[in-house]
Simulated scan of single mutants.
Amino acid sequence: MSSWQKICRIEDIPVLGSRVVKRAGGDIAIFRNDQDEIFAIHDKCPHKGGPLSQGIVFGRTVACPLHSWQIDLATGEALAPDHGCAGRFELKVEQGEVYLAL
């Protein structure tokens, strides 16, 4: 059973932007797309470790700011022809509050 940590309100995450949660095991980037969908993945591209939170969000994808690898926000997987995974985290939104599974 997961325990949930309240992170922020959904409107605290910019549309087509992100918010970073600092943690000892590596930072987590929480993204919001233009459909108000929320995603959480490691803030580290599987290619060269670029900060995905600084990438460009479009649809359900983020482009790494270093080499433009496209990462699927729902799975953390790099889109073909690239391969690798940033890793994802479970989220939920309740009454406008964003919660991250620990």
Rank of each mutant, 00 (worst) to 15 (best):
M1E: 12
S3Y: 00
I7T: 04
I7G: 09
I7K: 00
I10K: 02
I10C: 03
E11Y: 15
E11F: 15
E11K: 15
D12G: 13
D12F: 01
D12E: 08
D12V: 09
I13P: 04
V15R: 03
V15L: 00
L16W: 10
L16P: 00
G17F: 01
S18H: 04
S18L: 03
S18T: 00
R19I: 06
V20K: 04
V20Q: 03
V21I: 12
K22N: 07
G25A: 13
G26M: 05
D27F: 01
A29G: 13
A29E: 06
I30A: 03
I30N: 02
I30V: 06
F31R: 10
F31T: 00
R32C: 05
R32K: 14
N33Q: 08
N33K: 12
D34E: 15
D34A: 14
D34P: 02
D36Q: 05
E37L: 10
F39V: 03
I41C: 11
H42S: 10
K44D: 09
C45D: 12
H47F: 08
H47S: 15
H47A: 15
K48M: 13
K48G: 09
K48I: 12
K48A: 14
G49V: 11
G49R: 01
G50E: 07
G50C: 09
G50N: 10
P51L: 10
L52Q: 09
L52W: 07
S53R: 06
Q54D: 11
Q54W: 10
Q54P: 01
Q54V: 00
F58Y: 12
G59C: 04
R60H: 04
T61V: 15
T61N: 09
V62W: 11
V62T: 02
A63L: 10
A63P: 02
A63F: 12
P65S: 15
L66W: 04
S68V: 13
W69T: 06
W69V: 04
Q70H: 09
Q70V: 05
Q70Y: 05
D72P: 03
L73E: 12
L73D: 14
P81E: 01
P81T: 00
D82L: 04
G84T: 11
A86D: 01
A86R: 15
G87R: 06
R88F: 05
E90V: 13
L91T: 12
K92N: 03
V93Q: 04
V93G: 01
E94L: 08
E94V: 13
E94D: 02
Q95I: 09
Q95S: 11
E97Y: 12
V98L: 04
V98W: 07
V98N: 06
Y99C: 01
Y99I: 05
L100R: 04
A101S: 02
